[in-house]
């Protein structure tokens, strides 16, 4: 139901994430948040990004979402050069879907309206936006909560609204920061299934996570330490993947 049409992209770059020698340093910080990151993610891959606090995971997601720009290096997603300023709004609206760690819902809007505003500027008409919002909320188990404002929702419900919102414009690439962080077991299973559906349909998912169930569902686990990629384990190495999922020293 939430899947995008995999035939929508005809170019070979559809859903591809490509980072080359990416550097980022925040003003006033002595150390680089990211130093020389190279990463390729193919369409249809679910990549879990792990690492200790301050390792640069969120920074990497922000750069991929064009919310920030690298100091050096190139980031190309779905054929879009993320470092370009022009077209960033369209890119964020159409190419990527973003799940924030802190949910970031608009407090004065209902759950459904939080999804609908994301669809402004797309081809969808008002009725279509409403139907799409309800369809997505149903999919994350929030049927009947359409009109509830965030303050009337539990933390888990808010997180599910945030996940549903990321799907609103059928993005090719999903970027998620701890998408299951506040969820109970049942909700986690629902969300993980949705995310798997997305990659099964040819979409790409890069998720910062420490949730063992999402790690178990990942095709790759990439470890980031002090701004550098220090591990990149693929699912066909099942034993290593389990080790990575239970690795100590991760937050």
């Amino acid at each position: 139901m939430l899947r995008r049409d995999s035939s929508a992209h005809t170019t070979g770059s559809a859903g591809c994430i490509s980072l080359h020698d990416v550097h980022k340093r925040y003003r006033g910080e002595p150390d680089e948040a990211l130093c020389g990151v190279d990463l390729e993610v193919a369409p249809g891959e679910l990549v879990a990004l792990v690492g200790p606090s301050g390792s640069g995971k969120s920074t990497l997601l922000h750069l991929l979402a064009a919310l920030d720009r690298p100091d050096h290096g190139t980031i190309v997603i779905d054929g879009f050069d993320v470092a370009r300023r022009i077209g960033a709004g369209r890119y964020r609206r159409g190419t990527v879907g973003l799940v924030f760690q802190l949910h970031n819902l608009l407090p004065n809007l209902s759950a459904a309206a939080n999804l609908e505003v994301v669809m402004f500027g797309t081809h969808r008409r008002r009725q279509e936006r409403r139907a799409r919002a309800r369809e997505l909320l149903d999919a994350v188990g929030l049927a009947g909560k359409y009109k509830d404002v965030p303050t009337r929702l539990s933390g888990g419900e808010r997180q599910r609204v945030a996940v549903a919102r990321a799907f609103a414009n059928e993005p090719q690439v999903l970027l998620a920061d701890e998408p299951t962080g506040s969820l109970d077991d049942a909700s986690t299973a629902t969300v993980v299934a949705l995310l798997r559906d997305h990659v099964a349909a040819g979409g790409t998912l890069l998720a910062v996570t420490h949730d063992s169930r999402l790690l178990a569902a990942a095709d790759r686990v990439v470890t980031l330490t002090a701004g550098r990629i220090t591990g990149d384990i693929r699912k066909n190495d099942a034993v290593t993947l389990r080790v990575a999922a239970g690795a100590g020293g991760l937050e």
């Binding site: 979402a65 919310l67 709004g89 369209r90 890119y91 964020r92 609206r93 159409g94 973003l98 970031n104 608009l106 505003v117 994301v118 402004f120 500027g121 919102r165 414009n169």
Partner: peptide
């Protein structure tokens, strides 16, 4: 900031 981050243009 949120509206911009989910794809709203400056003009919108």
């Amino acid at each position: 900031g949120l509206l911009r981050s989910v794809g709203w243009t400056r003009r919108r």
